[in-house]
C-alpha cells in the first residue's frame, strides 16, 4: 500500500529460518492468541486473517481469544501473566503497549519488562479531514484560523490515540484547539461532515472512501511521508516541523518466552504479512519488523505518550 515495501528485504531473509525450524518441536499444539478487542473489531479481523495463514504454515491452529475491555488493559494483563512457553501470544495495539502506561500509574503489567516483542504488525498513520466546503484551503490556513481565534477550531477525538495525535498537533503548532470526544469514529465522521466539528484525525480505511466520494476533504497526513493514494496532500511535518504520529499493532509474547519461539513466530508472521492475498484481506498497512525494532518503537512511543499526556494535562489514573 505505501512505501513500507522496503521492509520486504527483511521479510525475504526471515523466511529462510522456517526451513531450519520445521524439524524443531515448536509448535506441538495449538497456540492461543489473545486479542484485547471485541470480535469483529479491525484488530480482531487482522488477528484472524493472520492466525489462519500462520496456523496453516506451522501445521497447528492459532485460537483467537477475545479479551476486550478497559482500553486493552484486561487482555494485556491476562497475556502478561500467561505461561511463557510460546503457546500464548498477544496481538495488541498502541492502546495496551504505549497509551495505557502513560495514562495509568498503577498498571497491572509493564509493557516493556512483561513482554517479549515478536514483530510489529501494522502501521496506521492518520489523515486530518475537514468538511468539503470548510474555508481553510490547506493546513496552513487552518493553523492561521486557530491563531486568529484561539479555541474556536474544534477537533473530534474518537479514542485516546486520536486525542493524543490531535493534542500533539496543537502543542507543536502552538495553537489552541477544543477537544470534542466521541465514543466511536462513526458519529465523529457525521459531525465533521455536517460541520458541527471542524476537523479530525481519521484512519485511512474509513477516511479514504469518504475522501474519494468528496464528503470529506484531506488537509494533511500524520506520517513522515506522503501517501500514495493522496499525492497532493502534504505531511503535517512539512508545515509543523518534526510532527510524526502513527498508531500500530504488534505481536508480543510473555517476557520469558524462549528465543526459538520468538524467531519461529517472527518468520511465520512475516511470511504471512508478505503474502499479497493477506494484504488484500486486511484494512491496515502491514509493517513487519524485527523484535529489536519493535522494542525500540514501543519504548519511543511510551516516551512520546508520557510527554504529551503531561503537556496536555490529561489525567493519569
Amino acid at each position: 500500500m505505501r512505501r513500507f515495501k522496503k521492509i520486504l528485504a527483511t521479510a525475504v531473509l526471515s523466511v529462510l529460518p522456517i526451513a531450519a525450524m520445521s524439524q524443531g518441536t515448536y509448535p506441538e499444539r495449538p497456540i492461543t492468541m489473545i486479542v484485547p478487542f471485541a470480535a469483529g473489531n479491525s484488530a480482531d479481523i487482522l488477528a484472524r486473517v493472520l492466525a489462519d495463514h500462520v496456523g496453516r504454515q506451522l501445521n497447528t491452529s492459532i485460537v483467537i481469544e477475545n479479551r476486550p475491555g478497559a482500553e486493552s488493559i484486561l487482555g494485556a494483563t491476562t497475556a502478561a501473566r500467561a505461561q511463557a512457553d510460546g503457546y500464548t501470544i498477544m496481538l495488541a495495539s498502541t492502546s495496551a503497549l504505549a497509551a495505557a502506561p502513560a495514562l495509568n500509574s498503577n498498571l497491572p503489567y509493564d509493557p516493556v519488562t512483561d513482554f517479549a516483542p515478536i514483530t510489529q504488525i501494522s502501521l496506521q498513520p492518520y489523515v486530518i479531514v475537514v468538511r468539503p466546503d470548510h474555508p481553510a484551503q490547506d493546513i496552513g490556513q487552518l493553523i492561521q484560523m486557530a491563531k486568529d481565534d484561539p479555541g474556536r477550531i474544534t477537533f473530534a477525538s474518537s479514542n485516546t490515540t486520536t486525542r493524543v495525535a490531535s493534542e500533539l498537533f496543537r502543542s507543536m503548532a502552538e495553537i489552541e484547539l477544543t477537544n470534542i470526544p466521541y465514543t466511536g469514529t462513526d458519529q465523529a465522521f457525521l459531525d465533521v461532515r455536517n460541520g458541527q466539528v471542524t476537523m479530525m484525525f481519521a484512519g485511512s480505511t474509513s477516511a479514504l472512501p469518504q475522501i474519494a466520494q468528496g464528503t470529506l476533504r484531506p488537509l494533511a497526513v500524520s506520517s513522515a511521508d506522503r501517501w500514495e493514494e493522496l499525492p497532493d496532500v502534504p505531511t503535517l511535518g512539512e508545515v509543523v516541523p518534526g510532527y510524526e504520529f502513527s498508531a500500530w499493532h504488534a505481536l508480543v509474547a510473555p517476557a520469558a518466552a524462549p528465543d526459538e519461539v520468538i524467531s519461529v513466530l517472527n518468520a511465520a508472521f512475516h511470511a504471512a504479512m508478505n503474502d499479497p492475498e493477506i494484504a488484500a484481506q486486511v484494512d491496515v498497512a502491514l509493517f513487519p519488523t524485527t523484535p529489536d525494532e519493535l522494542s525500540a518503537t514501543i519504548q519511543r512511543d511510551i516516551d512520546v505518550w508520557r510527554e504529551i499526556v503531561e503537556e496536555a494535562g490529561l489525567p493519569v489514573n
Partner: peptide, 20 residues
C-alpha cells in the same frame, strides 16, 4: 452510510470489510 448503530452492526460492517 457505513455507520453502525450498535456493536452487532459494527460486526456486520467488519464482515463486509474482510471481503473488501
Amino acid at each position: 452510510l457505513g455507520i453502525p448503530g450498535s456493536p452487532t452492526m459494527a460486526l456486520i460492517i467488519g464482515v463486509l470489510i474482510i471481503h473488501g
